[in-house]
């Protein structure tokens, strides 16, 4: 079982590395088509990455080792997040369970690394972006924890694989009010965590309104490539987690070659669907004022909290 679990864990990281840039490409392409443009094609993020990796990294005067180490820490934490998210199979390593709290901790390591990279160059915009990023993170992380915790109460375990297995065994629980409330809260938290509209605009050129973009303004070359890849991996892993909780079918409970191949196909389909949906919704949204963001995130926390309360009431 342990060898199978290793295959699933490494496979999840490898498949998400391959799929996440394509997911970003699909989302940009859907947006371009809805705006009447032809679009650069779904492979464009991969071309951008290849080019950035071949450029010399230039750094601002007076930066420390954080500017080099930060992007690597972000990629490493994102890879850990991808490996621990049960998007392909539910087999887990004995020593590293994909427990909810481990996954959120991996997410936070990347968040902090990104914020430090933003602060390191000492520019006004970088510091502003980091400060906003940490404000949003402080509001988002509890929501992610509480909403998945609500799903874990009926299962009696906070291990994500067991939650997914339970949902596969009893598909009716997916449409229970508790589950829907928790998933809605989680979806809003994921949109905020991955810096999408209406919290942050990933294609903005206006420094004053930037959150994620402001932190990476001073990075270039391969440092920027790692930052971009790390952020895309987070998007892929979190959307993959949401899609797996919403539609767990296709996830392999036993490790077989056929089962894993089906799981990869199902994951690609789910990510393409949820990415296209998110990109379509984004066309109709504008960025909300920064001071309204806490209201939106407090709303998502309330949804998640209601889900927890309801799941205790239903259980007793």
């Amino acid at each position: 079982m342990s060898a199978g679990a290793a295959v699933v864990t490494v496979g999840q990281a490898a498949v998400l590395v391959a799929l996440s840039p394509l997911l970003v490409g699909v989302m940009r392409q859907v947006r371009a088509r809805l705006e009447g443009r032809a679009g650069a094609g779904v492979l464009q993020p991969w071309r951008d990455l290849r080019k950035l990796l071949g450029k010399e990294p230039l750094t601002a005067d007076g930066v420390s080792w954080i500017s080099v180490a930060g992007p690597l820490v972000l990629v490493a934490s994102s890879l850990l997040l991808c490996a621990l998210t049960p998007v392909l199979g539910t087999a887990t390593l004995d020593r590293v369970p994909n427990d909810l709290f481990v996954v959120v901790a991996a997410l936070l390591i990347g968040t902090v690394a990104l914020a430090l990279v933003g602060l390191d160059a000492g520019t006004a915009f970088g510091g502003m972006g980091s400060s906003r990023h940490m404000t949003i993170a402080a509001l988002v992380e509890p929501t992610v924890l509480v909403s998945v915790y609500a799903l874990s109460i009926p299962v009696g375990s906070s291990v994500l694989s067991q939650i997914v297995e339970a949902r596969l065994d009893h598909p009716a629980t997916i449409w229970s009010p508790v589950s829907l409330l928790a998933l809605l809260g989680l979806a809003i938290a994921i949109v905020a965590e991955t810096a999408r509209l209406p919290i942050d605009n990933p294609s903005t050129h206006l420094e004053v309104t930037m959150v994620h973009e402001a932190m990476v303004l001073e990075s270039s070359g391969r440092d920027l490539a790692w930052l971009e890849l790390g952020s895309w991996l987070r998007l892929g892993a979190l959307l993959g987690l949401l899609a797996t909780l919403l539609a767990p079918w296709g996830v392999a409970t036993e490790v077989t070659a056929l089962g894993l191949a089906v799981a990869v196909g199902a994951l690609a389909l789910k990510l393409a669907l949820i990415g296209s949906l998110l990109a379509t919704v984004e066309v109709f949204l504008a960025k909300v004022r920064l001071f309204r963001v806490p209201e939106l995130l407090a709303g998502s926390f309330v949804l998640a909290f209601l889900a927890v309360t309801a799941s205790y009431l239903v259980a007793s």
Binding site: A38, A40, H205, E207, E213, L217
Partner: peptide, 18 residues
């Protein structure tokens, strides 16, 4: 949208470092 230089892989960015 009419000339759409982005379809050829060109994109405007916010920082000279990018």
């Amino acid at each position: 949208p009419v000339y759409d230089a982005e379809r050829y892989g060109a994109r405007l960015v916010a920082s000279p470092r990018h």
